[in-house]
Design a protein around this nucleic acid. Structure first.
Length: 114
DNA sequence: CAGGTGACTCTTT
DNA sequence: GAAAGAGCCACCT
């Protein structure tokens, strides 16, 4: 089973670290692209993280990776409306709350890695 | 090989 | 406080 997805973006070794970090995000919490990149050892690899997510990862809680709006909030960065709606739906189901403007309050749902 | 693009983010106007 | 510019990395044409 589980033929590893040979996503084009997963060809780089860093992708392995990125996936490990994403899998470490606890249920009900979210992390930003920059945060994942930093934890994966790529302090400026936010683009690489976005690429890794976009390449349709396997068994990855991709919905927990969101775009950073500002220091306090994050927002879904997916452009495709349907996928964005799915992500929000999945996050709400996990217990992540959105404010009236559709933002995720990091102080409340942001992941605070040890 | 070079130019363009994007599920990003920070700094400056 | 919003908008624009610059930096960044990997992939595609």
């Amino acid at each position: 089973m589980a033929l590893p997805v040979r996503a084009r973006g997963a060809a780089n070794p860093a992708a392995h670290e990125i996936y490990a970090v994403v899998r470490a995000i606890p249920r009900g919490k979210v992390a930003t692209y920059g945060q994942v990149a930093e934890l994966a050892g790529l302090p400026s690899g936010h683009r690489a993280v976005a690429r890794a997510m976009r390449t349709c990862p396997a068994r990855l809680p991709w919905q927990r990776v969101v775009g950073r709006k500002d220091a306090r909030r994050a927002q879904i960065s997916i452009q495709e409306h349907e996928h964005a709606a799915l992500q929000r739906s999945l996050l709400e189901r996990e217990g992540v709350s959105f404010d009236d403007a559709g933002f995720i309050v990091l102080a409340r749902s942001g992941w605070l890695p040890q």
